[in-house]
């Protein structure tokens, strides 16, 4: 149709082109959409499905038995996995909440505070530096700092603040939290920073012009408008926190077992169905938490804003 018009008289062709353009662009856009969706499906969704299917198999003598059964799932929470799950949830949520409490004010200050352009650029660059370095290399350094003969204890003992070394600094839940917090700070701060940065300054001015105190402006304008960023920060922080593997391994010293460590040990024991079931369980856990978060936010956002 378009080809024919182009071959025809030039004036006619121009007219046709102009009329065709909107409908011509649309197929391209939808082609790209379906192409990307298909690629995403193949690369991400299919492995997840295979993983899920695997969880219905069993292992015997280090061999996977390919006959469907619920055995892996029913035995999943035996051998103390329930405590591991609770611990994982507790640590992941604690870390996420700490990140939110520290990250939100920081993001607010960075986006709307009295920061020079240069200062802002420096802070944003500093936030991206953790991505340059491998997580395990960054984490293992803490052993030298927090250990019994580490920097902190040496200082504490030599200044006479404590008599012996403080032993809860390393290989404890404290050190696991401590190791995860700097690693997960950027993924919490950056989305919130972006969201707050998008809030038009005149909205903030309008709020105080209409009589809003800084606290009212914050709770009625800034916070509700930054919620999409908070949501994204929550996802980007909670996901890795639930799946954290390096920090509990290196700084937990075998005393702080999380679900990821269970997955790892099942993997080394070649029990792939258990690996699959545990992974599927973590994903389910994450989805459940995000769903709850979404509900809370909607409730909170709704009641905080409407007159009703």
């Amino acid at each position: 149709m378009t080809m024919n018009a182009e071959i025809g008289s030039p004036a006619n062709a121009r007219q046709e082109n102009r009329m065709e353009r909107p409908s011509f662009r649309l197929p391209l856009a939808s082609l790209a959409f379906w192409g990307i969706s298909l690629a995403w499906f193949i690369i991400v969704i299919i492995p997840l499905i295979i993983l899920f299917v695997y969880s219905f198999f069993t292992t015997q003598y280090f061999q996977t038995v390919y006959s469907p059964s619920l055995e892996t799932w029913t035995s999943l929470f035996s051998s103390g996995r329930f405590e591991v799950t609770l611990r994982t949830l507790r640590i992941a949520l604690t870390v996420t909440m700490i990140e939110l409490l520290v990250g939100f004010p920081f993001a607010l200050w960075l986006a709307k505070g009295n920061v020079s352009k240069l200062g802002r650029a420096i802070f944003l660059a500093l936030l991206t530096i953790p991505f340059f370095l491998d997580l395990s290399s960054r984490t293992i350094v803490w052993r030298a700092i927090l250990g019994q003969n580490g920097l902190v204890n040496t200082i504490l003992i030599s200044t006479g603040l404590t008599e012996g070394p403080v032993d809860w600094l390393l290989y404890s839940e404290f050190s696991v939290h401590f190791g995860m917090i700097p690693a997960l700070f950027p993924p919490m701060v950056l989305p919130i920073y972006m969201a707050i940065n998008l809030i038009d300054d005149t909205l903030i001015e309008a709020s105080s012009d209409l009589g809003g105190s800084p606290a009212q402006t914050f709770s009625r304008v800034i916070l509700p408008l930054s919620l999409p960023g908070v949501m994204a920060g929550f996802v980007f922080t909670l996901g890795p926190a639930l799946a954290a593997w390096v920090e509990p391994g290196m700084l937990g010293g075998g005393f702080v077992n999380l679900l990821s460590n269970s997955i790892e040990s099942a993997y080394t024991a070649l029990r792939y169905p258990v690996v699959a079931a545990l992974s599927a369980f973590v994903i389910g856990l994450l989805l459940l938490l995000l769903g709850m978060m979404m509900l809370v936010l909607r409730r909170f956002g709704g009641s905080g804003l409407t007159l009703r």
Binding site: D200, T202, L203, E205, A206, S207, D209, L210, V221, P224, L225, L305
Partner: peptide
């Protein structure tokens, strides 16, 4: 009070 040039209406309300 001010009527702003770009109106500055709160988009979430």
């Amino acid at each position: 009070t001010t009527v702003f040039q770009n109106y500055a209406l709160f988009p979430h309300m």
